[in-house]
Design a protein around this nucleic acid. Structure first.
Lengths: 149, 149
DNA sequence: CATATGGCTTGCATCACGCAAGCTTATCTG
DNA sequence: CAGATAAGCTTGCGTGATGCAAGCCATATG
């Protein structure tokens, strides 16, 4: 969203936050991803967000390609907001927030399930070298290797 | 952080966002987690955040138990801000944001490495039933089973 | 024709943020 | 030991984002 940028930050997380870091935005994505909400009124009721802010957020999500607006009826302003693949892949971010909240603030109302077999889905940091789960204390960063661009 | 709450949201992600959802907060955690920053001046230079806001954010992080303030010298206001375990475990959230940004906005400057063997660390949604990685499209939510509380 | 519904826009008050300035207690320099 | 420098703030002020209430428009409904 323009206006809430992080100038001078060469960082993927910061760039992602420029799109979804504003108040309400991640909760809109949560509702779209896990409750399959698509309409303005659904988001409005769910969040109790001011209507002008809601309109701006939805426009922003469409503008940044996380959602797609589909006109469904005779009125151009009665749209359905559907997640794009780009938006859908924000799921792990919501899941990580949820997992942290469940652990440190108390269990929330929902768990994540695999739609194929109903198994619990968790988000694990895993090493591609040793193929083992990695403790958060053992994760560091390194400059990305320079390759042919 | 008080003031930026999401009243009426019974949701772990929303509760987590009440603590870290304000502007700058997640970038402060990023610097603390991956650059090992501990001092006011380090965060200030890194982010170019307004000083009054920085002071409020650090106080907030201490108040919510994500950081711990240690007095190191003769002056009580020269503190080091160290992540607690509670704060450290926010790592997957930053990692998920980074992974998304790397994929959808272009590769950023860093990759995550396992400190034991230098292997690449990724964050995978994985099913505890079939033990396989799960596609984001196949993850749903279900109300948590009620058990003895 | 009156009312209801969905999806807004507008106006206004309030609050958070950005910026510049200044303050305070060390420590460093000549 | 005077003056400069540095770290870590606080204060004041202007601007922009947000919250709230009201109103509007087109369609659907009775």
């Amino acid at each position: 969203m323009l206006g809430k940028t992080y100038p001078g930050q060469d960082c993927s997380a910061a760039r992602a936050l420029e799109l979804v870091g504003e108040r309400w935005t991640l909760l809109l994505l949560r509702d779209a991803m896990f409750r399959n909400y698509v309409r303005y009124s659904q988001f409005s009721e769910s969040l109790g967000i001011a209507t002008n802010v809601l309109a701006r957020r939805l426009d922003g999500l469409v503008a940044s390609g996380l959602m797609e607006a589909r006109v469904t009826g005779p009125r151009a302003d009665h749209r359905e907001y559907h997640l794009t693949q780009k938006g859908l892949e924000m799921k792990p971010i919501i899941m990580a927030l949820t997992a942290w909240g469940d652990k440190w603030l108390g269990p929330g109302p929902v768990v994540f399930r695999h739609s194929h077999d109903g198994g619990l889905v968790t988000l694990e940091p895993r090493c591609s070298q040793c193929r083992e789960p990695v403790d958060v204390g053992d994760i560091g960063v390194q400059r990305r290797a320079v390759d042919a661009r």
